Simulated scan of single mutants.
Amino acid sequence: MVAEESTAPAAVGGTAVVRAAGTSAWPGLRQAVVGWFGREDFGREDFGREDFGREDEESVGTELDRSAHALTSADDAVAEAVRRAVRDAWQARFETALAGLADHERGPAAEALRALLDAHAPSPAAAVSATGDGLAVGGDVAIRADHGSVAALRMGDVTLANPPLPGPPQY
């Protein structure tokens, strides 16, 4: 099982792939992720050296390109489902890669993943935009109304009144 210190960067990695696709951050993040998956030994003293061998760089790059294409070409009706699926798939891929490492390699690999995400992943604010009087949120929004109250992120013309009485039962 992968330690907590490894699951957090894996989750951030999945989210970073989704946020970067179709942006100017994509080429740098893509190249860094391909390189991360290709590292041969995360436990060496000379760990930063570009030795590849864990996974085929070409296949990782191809999967990243497929993910980016799916994200950038999804229609609005399915875009959120595609984002979730791609995020979850890459999170699982990062977690699997970390879990497959020896104990002495896992910590340095998780740290290397964190560093590449810090350097190449777009910030949440950079991944959202709005035009006109719109509101853009880089994450989840939860709005609740409890105990008969009304809540909304943005409301146009709203009239609060008692609902009409139901009509007679129809059998």
Results as ranks from 00 to 15, higher is better:
G148Y: 06
A102E: 02
A97I: 00
T23E: 08
E80G: 15
A89L: 06
A126P: 01
R144H: 07
D157L: 04
R83H: 03
T62P: 00
E80V: 15
R44L: 14
G38A: 14
L165C: 06
P168E: 13
E105W: 02
L153G: 15
Y171C: 00
A8G: 07
A127C: 12
S129R: 02
S149F: 09
G138V: 06
S129M: 01
L113E: 03
F42L: 07
D103M: 09
Q170V: 10
A68M: 05
A20N: 11
F42Q: 03
E45V: 00
D140V: 07
A126W: 01
A85V: 03
L160K: 01
A79H: 04
L98R: 02
Q31T: 04
R106K: 13
L71C: 02
T72Y: 08
V60Y: 05
L64A: 01
A110D: 09
E55T: 13
P108D: 02
G107F: 00
A109N: 11
P164L: 14
T131W: 01
A121D: 04
P166Y: 00
E50N: 10
I143K: 02
H104S: 10
A92L: 10
T23A: 04
R144Q: 14
L116W: 05
A136H: 09
A109V: 09
S6D: 09
G61T: 04
D118Y: 04
V12G: 03
P124F: 02
A77L: 08
F37W: 13
P27L: 02
Y171F: 11
E105S: 12
G107T: 12
A25N: 06
T7S: 13
V34F: 14
D51Y: 04
F42K: 03
G38Q: 13
A121L: 05
D75N: 10
W36G: 03
P164N: 13
A89F: 03
R87S: 15
V141L: 13
V82N: 04
E80W: 15
A126V: 00
S129Y: 01
Y171K: 08
A127D: 09
W90M: 07
A127P: 08
R66M: 12
A145E: 03
L135C: 13
E63N: 07
R87I: 06
A77K: 14
G48S: 01
A79D: 08
A126G: 01
A3V: 11
A145S: 14
V78T: 11
V137N: 05
L160A: 09
A127S: 13
E40W: 03
E45Y: 03
R19I: 05
E57F: 04
T15A: 14
H147N: 14
R30S: 02
G167W: 10
D51L: 12
D88H: 01
W26A: 05
E45S: 08
I143T: 12
A81I: 02
E58P: 00
E4P: 15
D65R: 09
A112D: 11
A77D: 15
A130S: 15
E95R: 14
A102C: 00
V128G: 08
G61W: 12
L135R: 15
A97K: 01
D103F: 08
L116V: 13
S6C: 10
